[in-house]
Design a protein around this nucleic acid. Structure first.
Lengths: 195, 195
DNA sequence: CACTGTATAGACCGATCGGTCTATTATTTT
DNA sequence: AAAATAATAGACCGATCGGTCTATACAGTG
């Protein structure tokens, strides 16, 4: 990584959490200047536009979640344990002090009706997230861990929607009950499908 | 309603859908000027600030959903039918051409971490929405329509999170499957709890 | 119809927006 | 170390932001 690439990465790492928190329209270049302690020319020497910074920030946030999740799931062998770990991860994200909501939801809600490119990024991320869960269920069936009646696709859609909705509701109401009820229900459903 | 009140209402009715679509930060006064065909002085003669317009727009959107839902539910007597109608309403909102996502979600995501007043409005709306479902389940148990084991609070939390998540996911992916799967699952759960 | 008070238009304000450009400073390469 | 190249600072740009103010137009009342 040469200087330019390192600087680019540095700016994205500083900008991404701010954009996730304040939104794309709500974040100004001066916010990013302040966070990076760089002048405007320094920023624009590395990016074409604010839009590009937003898109790359979203990529960065999504990738970070993906790798974190990959590492955590690798600690377990049983599909049930992997699914449980996944649920715990999202639950912790909803209540964590330093987390400011799911980037998919945050960027997606703003991009809807205004930014087709970002919307496309989100659409892919949703598919990938649901596919991860679906694969875990399917693999669990293959290995004989889960009953054959466990519908992978239905479960992954349901679980995804419930988790996203619950993380948001918990943040809004300041009440962790929402996410707790949801993760408990999903855990029970997984357990019920164990052989 | 005198002139001032009528004008105020008129502005909110024009502004609310725009703000719901483009966001609070993403909507400018000039957008509202264009939609209302009024000059800046005309707008600011009726409101103190853009913030006030946003807050009142949110109130308007929430109330409109509330009254629409009240009317629709009044068409049915059985709690099961009321719950089904409620699910159908949300489903139609997710796929409707003229709807631009749930105002609770749209405003809430943006207000999180930046606008405590709006966040408070959303928090109350979430509680009211869940309470509506919870009451329908409880009433159904009282009237002997539902089995006693139907947990009203758990169901309302789960259903709410699933619906919000699914409406959003359907809008993002452009695939109505998300909301279809979710409403079907919830309908099945309701049916399963019929005596 | 005239009078009076309210409501609106639109010029105007300073601040800030995203973005550009050049002089200067770092970093590489020789 | 010197020369060549890449990267940054910050003044600057026009456009637009939210918001104010006053002259004018309108509505409601006698």
């Amino acid at each position: 990584m040469n200087k330019a690439e390192r600087t680019k990465q540095f700016i994205i790492e500083k900008a991404a959490p701010i954009i996730n928190r304040k939104g794309m329209a709500g974040t100004s270049i001066s916010d990013i200047m302040e966070a990076t302690q760089m002048a405007k020319g320094g920023i624009y020497g590395n990016f074409e536009s604010k839009e590009e910074i937003c898109a790359l920030s979203l990529d960065y946030l999504l990738e970070r979640i993906d790798t974190t999740l990959n590492h955590r799931l690798a600690d377990h062998t049983a599909c049930k344990d992997k699914l449980f770990e996944l649920l715990e991860f999202y639950k912790s994200q909803a209540t964590a002090e330093n987390a400011f909501g799911c980037p998919m939801l945050n960027f997606g809600v703003e991009a809807d009706d205004t930014n087709p490119e970002i919307k496309q990024q989100i659409s892919k991320a949703i598919a990938a997230t649901q596919a991860r869960m679906s694969k875990l269920v399917k693999k669990g069936i293959e290995t004989g861990e889960f009953k054959k009646g466990f519908d992978a696709e239905t479960f992954s859609i349901k679980a995804f929607c419930m988790i996203e909705g619950a993380m948001w509701a918990t943040r809004m109401t300041g009440n962790s009950k929402q996410v707790r009820v949801v993760t408990d229900l999903l855990k029970k459903e997984i357990t019920d499908h164990l052989k």
